[in-house]
């Protein structure tokens, strides 16, 4: 037997003796580590502000630049989004914002109707001035109660006229 063969057979003999003992130790240790690591990780993550960490350490612009927005939008259910929006209210807000009635008046109104509008506003202004003057002369402190009754909707039960 050569020295090399002697060494080889010695290692095999030693492995045959130590392997069962090694298995008996390492397997429970592996299971213990497997159960312990998630707990340790959770505890560590609880101590770390991950959001802050990402904001500080990650180049989010670069990440977002890599995202294919078209693909994301293509997968989105736009109809479902639209169904959740009150389109009538939205249209009303837009019409109020751009003052659509005013645009229509500007495009279709005549010089005469503009003149009438001016006269109406001037008389309203004159009404207000005269009221204020008279109220001051009469030492009246309360503002005039100019709210007129509002027509009530017709009742289907008694048929009252509005």
């Amino acid at each position: 037997m050569t020295p090399a063969e002697l060494l080889k057979s010695s290692i095999r003999g030693a492995w045959a003796i130590t392997e069962p003992a090694g298995r008996a130790v390492l397997e429970p240790a592996g299971r213990a580590v497997g159960a312990l690591v998630p707990r340790i990780l959770d505890a560590v993550l609880d101590q770390v502000d991950l959001t802050r960490l990402v904001i500080d350490r990650v180049d989010l612009d670069a990440v977002v630049a890599e995202v294919d927005v078209d693909t994301v939008v293509a997968r989105a259910d736009v109809d479902a989004v639209i169904a959740r929006i009150d389109l009538i209210a939205l249209a009303g807000t837009i019409i109020d914002g751009v003052d659509l009635p005013e645009i229509i008046r500007d495009s279709t109104g005549s010089i005469a109707s503009e003149g009438i509008r001016g006269v109406r506003m001037q008389t309203i202004d004159a009404d207000e001035r005269v009221n204020r003057l008279v109220d001051r002369v009469l030492l009246r402190r309360q503002a005039r109660a100019t709210e007129a009754p509002v027509p009530q909707p017709r009742s289907p039960l008694n048929g009252d006229a509005p």
Binding site: P101, R120, T123, A126, E128
Partner: peptide, 22 residues
């Protein structure tokens, strides 16, 4: 939503009792 045809500057007075000048 009801679109108000009354000009914006006249809306505060709409439906209020008119003064003697008008």
């Amino acid at each position: 939503h009801v679109v108000d045809a009354v000009p914006r500057e006249a809306r505060p007075y709409q439906g209020r009792r008119a003064g003697v000048v008008s």
